[in-house]
Simulated scan of single mutants.
Amino acid sequence: MTITQPPRDTASRIRDVLARLDEEQDVWVSTADTAGAPYLVPLSFLWDGTHLWLCTRIGNPTGRNLSDGGRARLALGHTRDVVVLDGEVETYGPKEVPTEVADGFHAKTGWDPRGSGPAYHWFRVRPTAVEAWYEEPELVGRHIMRDGAWVEAP
């Protein structure tokens, strides 16, 4: 895919990212353990308008890293249409997740982790930085959120 349009302005990029967060079902989740060893997996997610909600077993590398490290880098898209989000993570036990989140996650993904046992924990990711770009012409202006605030109001 080659982008032939002029680079999008910040407001357009923010609108596009918000639409993708509503529509897409899976996100790449990058974490690191306490020694700094990286780990990357795809997980299903729910966007609630402010946070991304993930669910995985607390005992696997991603669950441990999310819980212990409190940070993650998430990525949507392929190499020519990129969204990268850095965020702060809060961990919720299986009985602590808000019902509307678990119900929304189930409706969006078709999977209800509440029926998968107590090993599945929930992770709420608050974006603190977001970058979005189509190919090289959009590298300038790719930072659309900094310090948890959109560069321009969506």
Rank of each mutant, 00 (worst) to 15 (best):
A32P: 01
D16W: 15
P61I: 08
D147M: 01
V27G: 04
W53V: 13
A35P: 02
D103S: 12
T4M: 05
I14V: 15
I58M: 06
M1T: 11
R57L: 15
F123C: 07
D33P: 01
D68Y: 05
L40T: 14
V130C: 10
Y120D: 03
A11D: 10
L54F: 11
A35C: 05
G141I: 04
P127K: 00
L74P: 07
L43G: 10
S30Q: 12
S30V: 14
T91I: 05
T128I: 11
D112Q: 04
Y134V: 03
A129P: 01
P127V: 02
S12Y: 07
P137Q: 05
Q25W: 05
E100V: 11
P6T: 11
H106F: 03
T56V: 13
E96R: 10
A37Y: 06
G36C: 12
T62P: 08
L46R: 06
S67V: 02
K108H: 00
G87P: 10
V130H: 04
P137H: 05
R142K: 10
I3L: 11
M145Q: 10
D9F: 06
Y120I: 00
H106V: 05
I58P: 04
L139H: 10
G148H: 11
A153M: 06
V97S: 01
V89Y: 06
P94D: 04
R146P: 00
R8W: 14
I144D: 01
L139F: 04
V125F: 11
V140A: 14
W53F: 04
P154Y: 09
G59W: 12
R64W: 09
E136W: 07
V83E: 01
N60Q: 14
G36I: 06
T62F: 07
E152A: 03
T109M: 08
P42L: 09
W53A: 04
W122M: 00
T91Q: 07
A153D: 13
G36S: 07
E90W: 08
V29C: 13
H121R: 06
L46P: 05
A119G: 12
R73S: 15
R142G: 00
D9T: 12
R13E: 07
Q5A: 15
R8Y: 06
I58L: 15
W133D: 00
T34L: 13
A102L: 00
G141L: 03
T2S: 10
A107W: 00
P61W: 09
T91Y: 02
F45I: 05
E88W: 03
W28M: 14
E96N: 10
P154Q: 05
L43Q: 09
R142A: 06
H106E: 07
W150M: 04
D103H: 08
E88M: 07
G87C: 09
V41H: 09
L43C: 13
P113T: 06
H143C: 02
T50P: 08
V97Q: 01
A102G: 01
P42R: 08
P113H: 06
E100W: 11
E23L: 02
L66C: 12
I14N: 07
A72G: 13
D103G: 02
W28I: 15
V82H: 07
P38W: 02
G115V: 00
W150I: 02
W28R: 11
A19M: 06
G104Y: 01
L40R: 08
G110L: 03
V130I: 13
A75Q: 15
V27W: 04
